[in-house]
Structures are given as structure tokens and as C-alpha cells.
Amino acid sequence: MRRIKSRTILLVVTFGLLVLYICKDLSDHKTNFLQINVGEEDSQARQATTKTSYVYSWPRCQQNVSAANVTGFSSLPGNIQNFLYFQHCRHFPMLLDLPDKCGGADQSAEVFLLLVIKSAPENYDRREVLRKTWAKGRLQNGVWIQRIFISGTASSGFEKERQNKLLELEQREYNDILQWDFQDSFYNLTLKQILFLEWMERNCPNARFLLNGDDDVFANTDNMVEFLQGLKDNDGSKHLFTGHLIQYVGPIRSSGSKYFVPVQVQESEAYPPYCGGGGFLLSGYTAMVIYNMSHSIPFLPIDDVYMGMCLAKAGLGPVHHIGVRTAGMHIPSNKLDYYDPCFYREILLVHRFLPANMYLMWQRLHDPYLKCKHKQIPL
């Protein structure tokens, strides 16, 4: 009798240990959730108590060592080699999340214009100015504007640790940062875009429209709301993708160029039509189409071209908007002030503004006593 009891106890203990082992193994390979503290949006953040949320995390993607077997691999620049090693990676651990930014997936249709701003961790001064100017979360013309900065990390070491802490502090105060644990670099901008769209599908699928842009653009979001509200029969549920249209171009094969794309990355000599990545407007519908198309299109390191590739596969295309100037503003005479606010009253977006000029332009455009002799956007 005692032998039977002993064997029974041994079987129970063994079974229990087996279950614990299986659970641990599954937890090492499936997504997991980490608690963080996030505050409320903008001015309410300082008064609000922090609330517990969860970060959606994936296992770290490993490099594809077989990429080194590509013909001519050893002669490629280091950034291209690194891109090829990790070109297959679509998921990275999330460090900072905003699961309730749009009021939850079910309430996300209340967000009329979602500002999705690409920002490297070190660009604190740019983010601070944007929060005070065109990217301020607010009710505009009766509709809601919300802001999100999307970021990766510094490469490694103490710098990565410091910058991650900086973003964490910003998150506590402003609740406006999405961050993943991948190296924030020019050739990883496509990865950043797709990671955001994955987040959007999960947390903000019904946002009406998006501005996708860099943190050094001046965006007249007042004008954007007016433009989007004036669209006929499109509340964000139909195709829209507009900005500075670029077409009839192909990969730059010069290794000294920032935009260098060798044949090992793309053999074709032609790009589809696309809009300059400094900033473009798109509907929530089109954002989800791009995300769905991206599942079957290998990453290209030039993010704006990749958006065009996804549109082309869906049978859709971008259109030009005269008010989007990602190549900068053309002022008709060097005797005129490039930063005269009257040139910017009707534009939607201009690329490459320093933070001080950004702040000043926003204030001057909202001066009720501003008087302009010239009203047109310079061509």
C-alpha cells in the first residue's frame, strides 16, 4: 500500500514539473507583456495619476547569416550589409507602448487626424517644439488631432541606456511615444513604418486620416484639417495618399549616396510613383491596405519608395498636392525673407525646419494681426 502511495506521489510531482517546463518554454517563444507606467496626454499629464498599461513584446529577431553568401556582399557598405542581415525581421521587442492613445480600438474612429512623427531618440528638442506647436493634441474645427512619435534606440552601450531613459521620462509626462528595440537608423525607417502600422491595426484601426512625417517638418495642421474635411465622399474609409509626388525615377546606384540601393537589394531599375517621405497624408483605409500589402513585399531600405511599392501592388497610387513641399520652399527672390509667414499661410507642409524657426513660424501664423500682401503659395 505504501509503495502504491509513493508511486502516486512521484507521478504527481513528475507531472507537475513537466507542466512547469512546458509553460516556461512557451513563455520564452511567445509574445509577453511587461508593465510600465504611462501618464495622461499633454497638459493633463502633470496633474493625472499614472496608470498601469502593458507593452506588447516579441522575441528578438536573429540575423540571417546566409545573407553573406549574396554575390558581392563583401564589397557592400556596412549599412547595406547590416540591412541584408536583418531584412527578414518584422518584429522587435516593444519598449514603450500607447495602447489607449486612440481611446482603444473601438473608439479610434474619434481620432480624425493622427500625427505619426518619425523621431530618433536624441531629437528631444524637436519633439518639445512640436508638442507646443503644430503637433499639439487638440480639438480643431470640431475634430480631434492626436500625436504619436515613433522611435527605435541608439546603437548600444551607455548612449542607448541614456536615450532610452530620456524617452521613458518623456513618456511619463506626455504619453506620446512608441519605441521598439531596434537600431534607429536611416535604413531602418521602413521597419519603423511597418512596426507602427502593426501597432495601428491593433490599437487604432479606425483613425480617419494620418499625417506621416519627420520631426523636422513644419506642418500647418490647421490647414490639413480643413483640407481633409473638404474631401468629397471620403471620411477616411476610402483611398487617399497625397504629398509631393515623385515618379519616373529608380534606384541610386552610387555607393556614396545616402539613398544608395545596390542590385543585391533591388534588381529593378525603376521605382513606382511615391510621395516624398518627409511628410504625406493618407486615409486610415489606405494605411491598412499598405500594411496588408507589406506582408508579401520584401523590405526596401528607402521607406517612402516602399510605401509606393505597397500602393502599386494594391492597384492604388499617390497623388500630388501643391501644398506639400518636402523638397523645401521656392521663394521667387533672394531679396525676400524665406521665413516670411505669408508664404506659409496656405501650405500644408514644408520639410527641414530648425526648432527655433518652427516655433516662431507657428506663433506668427497665429498672430491675429498678421497682414499679407502676397497670398499665393510660391510655385
Rank of each mutant, 00 (worst) to 15 (best):
H374N: 08
H366N: 13
L84Y: 14
F33G: 04
I377V: 13
V116H: 03
E226G: 02
N292K: 15
L130R: 05
Y21K: 11
S156G: 09
I80E: 02
K375P: 02
E201Y: 15
L169R: 15
L349N: 02
L178I: 06
G328D: 04
Q179P: 03
K335N: 13
D304A: 06
S296E: 14
G256R: 15
K132V: 02
E226A: 10
I302D: 00
S151A: 14
T52P: 02
R46A: 11
E226Y: 01
Q193A: 04
D97N: 15
V350L: 03
M224Y: 00
L349I: 07
A67L: 08
F241Y: 04
R162A: 03
V305W: 01
V12H: 10
D215R: 02
E40S: 08
Y274D: 02
V13H: 13
N292D: 11
A327H: 15
R253A: 04
L210W: 00
V129M: 08
Y285R: 13
Y339D: 05
A327N: 15
S53P: 02
D235V: 05
G236Q: 02
G323M: 09
E269I: 11
F158G: 07
V350A: 03
I148A: 02
I9H: 13
S74T: 09
S43H: 12
K136N: 09
N223E: 01
E201H: 14
Y285S: 10
Y21A: 09
S27T: 08
A105I: 05
G157M: 10
H239A: 05
H330T: 10
S296T: 14
Y259W: 13
A67K: 08
C275I: 12
V12A: 11
R147I: 00
